[in-house]
Amino acid sequence: MHIVVCMKQVPDSAQIRVHPVTNTIMRQGVPTIINPYDLFAIEEALRLRQKFGGAVTILTMGPPSAEDSLRKALTFGADRAVLLTDRFFAGADTLATTYALATAIRKIGVEFGPPHVVFTGKQTIDGDTAQVGPGVAKRLGLMQLTYVSHIDNVDLEAGTIDVERRSEGGVQKLRSKMPCLISVLEGVNEMRIGSLSDALAAARATIIKWSAQDAGVEDITKCGLRGSPTIVKRVFAPKPRAEKAQFIELGDKPGDAFVDELFKRRPKLESELEQLTRGY
């Protein structure tokens, strides 16, 4: 079984700060990490390989420094890592990104065998769009299975796969066909700690690096900024509200003081809260 995982290296958004005076992003020194949602996808891929054998290929598009995250992914036990890196890819929106990734996955199929399953995380923590997975599926004609919480069964002979996926208000149990694209819901598994031998192998491993041309991109105008139908016209800090919070001091009986103050300022709240708590 051949499994491809699409992964992204992202800035650790918890550590991004806005400069208090200039209101600009302070990106210097912000560490990069594997997109946390992608870890669930990697783990799920490794579990499938454990059951059915085969290989796990990790794919990422990004700057040359994304090699760090790929090497990290190899320490978990992935078999190979492909870095799609080229200045032509820079500035890609989600549509242009799916073109590049889909092209590279085709090439991976030619080089290492066509994938049965392509995994992605639910979304990234920097773009937060959840659009790239569906886009890759559509471009490659893969069955699209998003927000998957459990893989119930894989029948390699029949080519079927049964999954549970989160949907609005419940869980859908679906039977679909491979090849498929699965976006994995967060929290459905726990990332393993890689073995010592995997860590050693990862340190020695050669990361496969493909330019647009290496990956088989035929139309460079579909990549990067040029291939992006959306453009960012303006980036700005939110307007501070004219009125800031009124600070209140609560004294030595803070609980009662707070409740008094709150009901004084918002008299209707008292009866509303009374109603909500009736029956408690």
Binding site: P11, I25, D126
Partner: peptide
């Protein structure tokens, strides 16, 4: 919102 939610951006689909 963009940059992990620290700024806002306005996006167009022009053509």
């Amino acid at each position: 919102p963009t940059f992990g939610g620290s700024l806002l951006c306005t996006i167009f689909t022009l053509n």
